[in-house]
Design a protein around this nucleic acid. Structure first.
Length: 283
DNA sequence: TAAGATAAGAGGGACAT
DNA sequence: ATGTCAGTCTTATCTTA
């Protein structure tokens, strides 16, 4: 089980068995009865996924005493309750954004934990006024992408943009804005994260994956990776390791599975061959 | 048919004006 | 703010084994 990836992977063969990670746990645990008793009072775990963090009240008609007057009064109260919750534009904005976040996460099979972080990032962006003048869906997609990066969950900007209604350019603009304004320190994208994802869709062995990771480490230690796209590097490393292991994969297959072009794979492949001595001899 | 080569164009970062 | 430069990646097309 690879928690970073949000995937369930077979340890023997590297096959991705399922990529839906359900997070059904409450956010706390009770170890003793007394503790449990104490915690009964905290209510549901709060969540950033609801625009009001799950703390709002709702009115329901009282089914027991349904006098005509009472139900009218209740209806009025409920109306005001709803109004007071939704009246501010920022909260309306949030509620829309949370919907979009849910839709995207669903499409991309992202675990709830990532969605939570995406929601938190979106809130910050909204508080800083970054959403004004931009589309909610684009900023939401960008926030979710940022969440993938902070949690080291391998999703590409491209995947985000195909799931979103917005174009890649617009989302990446928002993403860079978020980087600058709200989330200055994100870990750099690690190519190794993409390896098992790519490998399992083209059916490469775990052995080949391990080898590919090793190759990437070598390349990194030689300063060959800076400035290069992480996905292309991962795909090329897999191509090399497949050759070494005698497993059959075409550049075309890897290109399809990874979302980069064959040309890019070829270029990275060439770089790896020239840059790493022990590969020069074998290939 | 897969792999390699080449060229043109897009988009974005760094840096200067 | 705007322009230029170097470098990456994509798309398209042709050649090679």
């Amino acid at each position: 089980m690879d928690r970073d990836m949000g995937e369930v992977v077979c340890g023997a063969c590297g096959l991705v068995i399922g990529d839906v990670m359900l997070d059904q746990k409450p956010e706390w645990r009770a170890f003793t009865l007394a503790e449990k008793d104490a915690r009964m009072r905290v209510g549901a775990p709060t969540s950033y996924l609801q625009y009001d963090k799950g703390l709002s009240t709702t009115f329901r008609p009282n089914e027991g005493s349904t006098s005509r007057q009472m139900s009218l009064k209740m209806r009025r109260l409920r109306k005001w309750n709803v109004r007071s919750r939704l009246h501010s534009s920022s909260e309306r904005n949030l509620s829309q954004a949370m919907n979009e976040l849910e839709r995207l996460s669903d499409k991309l099979k992202l675990p709830r934990s990532v969605r939570e972080i995406g929601a938190r990032i979106y809130r910050k962006a909204l508080d800083k006024g970054l959403v004004r003048g931009r589309s909610i869906s684009a900023v939401a997609a960008a926030a979710l992408y940022a969440a993938c990066r902070t949690t080291r969950t391998p999703r590409t900007l491209k995947e985000l943009s195909t799931a979103s209604l917005r174009g890649r350019k617009e989302i990446s603009r928002c993403y860079r804005l978020i980087l600058r304004e709200v989330n200055p320190r994100l870990p750099i994208d690690d190519p190794a994260k993409y390896i098992s994802k790519i490998a399992s869709t083209v059916g490469l062995s775990q052995r080949a994956q391990n080898e590919a990771v090793k190759i990437l480490r070598d390349a990194d230690s030689r300063g060959m990776v800076s400035g290069k796209g992480p996905v292309g590097l991962a795909a090329a490393a897999l191509y090399v390791s497949a050759l070494l292991a005698g497993e059959e994969v075409t550049q075309q297959d890897l290109a399809n599975a990874s979302g980069v072009t064959e040309v890019t794979i070829r270029n990275r492949y060439k770089g790896l061959r020239n840059g790493i001595d022990y590969l020069k001899e074998v290939l």
